[in-house]
Amino acid sequence: MYTDLVMDHFANPRNVGEIEDADGVGQIGNPVCGDVMRMSIKVEDDRIADVKFKTFGCGAAVATSSIVTEMVIGKTLSEAAEISNKAVAEALGGLPANKMHCSNLAADAMHIAIEDYLTRNGRADEVATILKSPKKASS
């Protein structure tokens, strides 16, 4: 049911953990099945210098978290903000239909972390331009 790439990211997740002195943190709960994902980012010169994740969820949730971290490292905040749920699923070679909702989590948690970074740095006014569709953090 999962592609080899999903299984690879699930079996060998990249960038697991928590950045102690993170510049931004995004946490989101999955309304469908109740899972939780947390992303913490380090930002330098408006670029994502480092990112780590923690996920409580299924194989797809772990794999999407893992690949999102790979996709955003080195990207500018605007570039990272443009990574959509769909792009995450596509990067993994697709997800089963009933697992598409898990891919929403990873991109959303990343966007919330960016929003958190901007807010912490007195740049809340930029949230709307950088994040075209700001996400509200939940649980």
């Binding site: 299984m7 699930f10 079996a11 469908v32 099945c33 109740g34 899972d35 409580f56 969820g57 299924c58 194989g59 949730a61 772990v62 009933n98 909702h101 898990c102």
Partner: peptide, 29 residues
């Protein structure tokens, strides 16, 4: 603190077949 489908897949990777009642492991969620 951990989810059944993830445990099931990890065990599967070790050649052990089990099942879980987790929402994530069921087709219906």
């Amino acid at each position: 603190y951990i989810e059944g489908e993830s445990m099931l897949l990890q065990l599967d990777g070790k050649g052990i077949a089990v099942s879980s009642g987790s929402a994530c492991a069921s087709g219906s969620l």
